[in-house]
């Protein structure tokens, strides 16, 4: 098991599983709900499709045991747990690749407590789906419910990410201006834009 000071570049590594599905979704909640329904043991690779927010590449891995999220890892920033979820909390769509793995292949990653997420946290942070979060918590072993940080920390981490917040604003500004043109509202735009 990794200790907190054992921060190597490859602190997250899992053997490749079997790709069972690959698709683009606008709502990550769909993929999380599907993982819960099929009691997925394996992992999702989540890639936001928005070029402006990518700043290169953003890719996240979320592992599951019997449909319940266990660890999250953001490849680009090398962050784990709820920080990784905050990295991935960008407006969709996402490409989602679903991999199945034997439980034993995930055991090393699943023992890395610094990467743990609370079971309901991905649904809350990535999909704003409190009902799905509640169902996920119901499916989780009791001792998992204390895992990781609470959702407040994911929100706090999101608000610390200046680059991403600026990117969201720039994207919204560009979108507003493009749509104003499309909607014949350019005359209403503020002078300083």
């Amino acid at each position: 098991m990794n200790t907190p000071e054992d921060y190597s570049d490859d602190r997250f590594s899992i053997p490749r599983g079997d790709l069972v599905r690959s698709r683009v979704v606008t709502d990550v909640g769909e993929a999380l709900a599907a993982a819960l329904a099929r009691e997925l043991t394996g992992y999702l690779v989540l890639e936001p499709q928005d070029a402006l927010l990518l700043g290169g590449e953003t890719r996240g891995v979320l592992t599951f045991e019997a449909g319940v999220p266990v660890v999250a890892y953001s490849v680009e920033t090398d962050s784990g747990g709820t920080d990784a979820l905050a990295d991935l909390a960008v407006p969709g769509p996402f490409r989602v690749d679903v991999f199945e793995s034997p439980s034993t292949a995930l055991s090393e990653a699943h023992d890395t407590d610094e990467l743990w997420v609370p079971p309901g946290s991905p649904a809350e942070t990535l999909a704003d789906a409190p009902d799905l979060a509640a169902r996920t918590r119901d499916a989780a072993p009791d001792e998992w419910l204390q895992r990781g940080d609470d959702d407040t920390d994911a929100v706090a981490a999101f608000l610390e990410d200046d680059a991403k917040l600026d990117a969201i604003r720039q994207q919204a500004r560009a979108e507003a201006e493009a749509r104003a043109e499309q909607w014949g509202l350019t005359g209403q735009l503020a002078d300083d834009t």
Binding site: A86, T125, D128, F158, I168
Partner: peptide, 14 residues
């Protein structure tokens, strides 16, 4: 929540 803050930033920018 993260999605609500993200969407709130967006509406403010609009």
């Amino acid at each position: 929540t993260v999605p609500a803050l993200s969407d709130g930033l967006k509406v403010q920018e609009y």
